[in-house]
Write a protein that binds this DNA or RNA. Structure first.
Lengths: 340, 340
DNA sequence: GCATTGTGTGTATCCGTATTCAAGTCAACT
DNA sequence: AGTTGACTTGAATACGGATACACACAATGC
């Protein structure tokens, strides 16, 4: 594992630059360290020299002395749900703005999770962002973030870690209320990963609101996956109960469900059956789907996450739920209303 | 930029472990270095001690002495085209298998690209994988990979860098031949990024084959983007020319195009017009789209990429084109054939 | 004028591991 | 027994930059 790649040619060191300019190595180091004790003139002279001779500080060496890597571990487990790449893209860009790098960990369920995350420790990652519903057990989670700042997105945990989620209660309530408002009374539910905390929360928030409005659950299905196929099959499973609306735990499930309802069951959406999802991924806005959904406040979630990694003492771990926004599109419509 | 995160508590060092066990620090180091000169007994004793006391080697320190980081820079610029997350996911997993880490660079067109990639140098990334059609200029590309191993995926370059692409010529030929074989003679083309080398290659391969088969180009459109919306608009632009088939430079364009043709233009696919794409992203297989396309040999591309990073001297830069596979689905069908 | 304070600089050392070098052990062989 | 050589091991040093410390020097106080 250690002789994988050969050594590239060596770049200039601070000592070499110092010798070239006629200053001490310490001065070079100070020139590149904001807030260190150095006169503006000397700093300028050194930075000019650095530009001229092409010197750039070696981040590895400075990691060793400062014990800070400016690297954030980004733990993901499923890039096939478009929600995740969208988050990863925004997180990475935000981190870059702060001068932080993203080390990507793509965790697979099979192998021992600790082995897959070992580099979080050996590389001395400064902080960890977890964007993975179920692959990490509570134990894995604790192990992975032990001793460093961390943010867990869209997942609940009993650990002492900051979690940032879209407000599931508000979201489900808005969705159910909307379906109720447009006259739907026989609502089915397609769950995704039922063993994930957020999955359970969405499900229970759904049934709670249903009960509050005096409706009975028309049916539930789940194939333990957030995938198009799982949504497809789940939707068809519910048809026996003759639902007039189906709520899906995630958008990607809803898309599969919609296609199943239309192509396999020959139903019209929203005339015969209304459909709603949760997340508001880009595809939900495509005209063919026009999926009513609850938009996760991605930008706020990212901003809040980043704010955990700025200077100062680490904020106390908190569990934050941010309200999202109900996005009504063509997949839901008042019963009996034929204008589109 | 340097006082962003506070120092975490210090883990055990090889010296401390050595003292605990009663061996030299060098022995500890050797115990963790495959192929180094140490007796199996001593190694076993040290590894046992390491497990007992929870010692793990500090990768940062070893980077400093070996000048190898085992970090690969992964340069991406557009996660909204599902093809890219799919590649990133496979690449990252493959690298993990080899004990390599992925540092993710999400490059945006606006700001100076060099600034966004500075960490490739300061972090001493061992190698670079570029998965970005146009955001990096040839100059940026040369700067980014200078002096290290690199693979550029799905992009051509005049630089002395290994490139790995799906064979555009074969692909376009297969697609055009297929459209011809099912009786289509008025074929339009929706391009994506026309200034990217691969975009130009796809376009020219398309027109070349068209000419060889004695067909005239029925129309071209482009909105300089690989997006659903660009495909939507591009498809509508072509309708004036009354095409009986439209070939899209990428699948994501084709999906937008199909929805436009069906929802906005009221056409039936494939009865009124056939549609084909290029890439074979997951969505292309969804029943609603059932998009005929040319599948990029993702797995082979990833394997070949990884093979560049295994031990031994760096392979000479080569330009590799791998044949893909024509995937025929419902979006294309013989003219006049009404069986689905 | 001298003590005081503050600023800017260089020297020396440290960060944690890999590796070179020399020394030591032991088996095999002449 | 003596020599050779293979194999282990520890001591010492190097990797490149950050920083504690000491010191030089200017500005300030009385």
């Amino acid at each position: 594992m250690n002789d994988r790649l050969e050594t590239p040619k060596r770049p200039m060191t601070s000592r070499q630059l110092a010798a070239l300019i006629g200053v001490s190595q310490a001065a070079v180091s100070r020139a590149f360290t904001p807030g260190s004790s150095i006169s503006p003139e000397l700093r300028e002279r050194i930075l000019r020299g650095a530009r001229e001779f092409g010197y750039q500080p070696n981040a590895i060496a400075s990691m060793l002395t400062t014990r800070r890597t400016n690297i954030i571990g980004l733990v993901v487990s499923d890039m096939s749900n478009p929600f995740h790449p969208a988050m990863v893209e925004r997180l990475t860009r935000g981190l870059q703005r702060l001068g932080l790098q993203s080390l990507l960990f793509n965790v697979t369920p099979g192998a021992r999770v600790e082995d897959q995350l070992i580099a979080i420790r050996t590389y001395n990652v400064d902080a960890v962002i977890v964007l993975s519903a179920t692959v990490l057990s509570e134990r894995d989670l604790a192990w992975a973030v032990e001793g460093r700042r961390a943010v867990v997105l869209n997942r609940l945990t009993t650990q002492d870690i900051t979690t940032i989620c879209c407000d599931t209660g508000l979201g489900m309530r808005a969705l159910v209320d909307h379906l109720h408002a447009i006259g739907r009374r026989r609502i089915g539910y397609v769950a995704g990963l039922t063993r994930s905390a957020i999955g359970m929360e969405r499900h229970s928030a759904f049934t709670t609101r249903l009960a509050e409005l005096g409706m009975r659950l028309t049916g539930t299905a789940s194939y333990e996956s957030h995938s198009y196929e799982a949504g497809w099959k789940g939707a068809l499973d519910l048809l026996a109960g003759k639902p007039d609306a189906i709520l899906f735990a995630t958008d990607i499930l809803a898309l599969g469900g919609m296609d199943a309802l239309r192509e396999a069951a020959g139903l019209r959406i929203p005339e015969d059956i209304a459909v709603a999802g949760f997340d508001d991924i880009a595809l939900a806005g495509w005209p063919h789907y026009a999926l009513t959904t609850y938009r996760q406040p991605i930008d706020q979630m990212v901003e809040l996450t980043l704010s955990q990694f700025t200077a100062g003492p680490a904020p106390a771990p908190a569990h934050i739920a941010i309200p999202g926004e109900l996005v009504i599109r063509g997949s839901t419509q008042r019963l009996g209303d034929t204008t589109v």
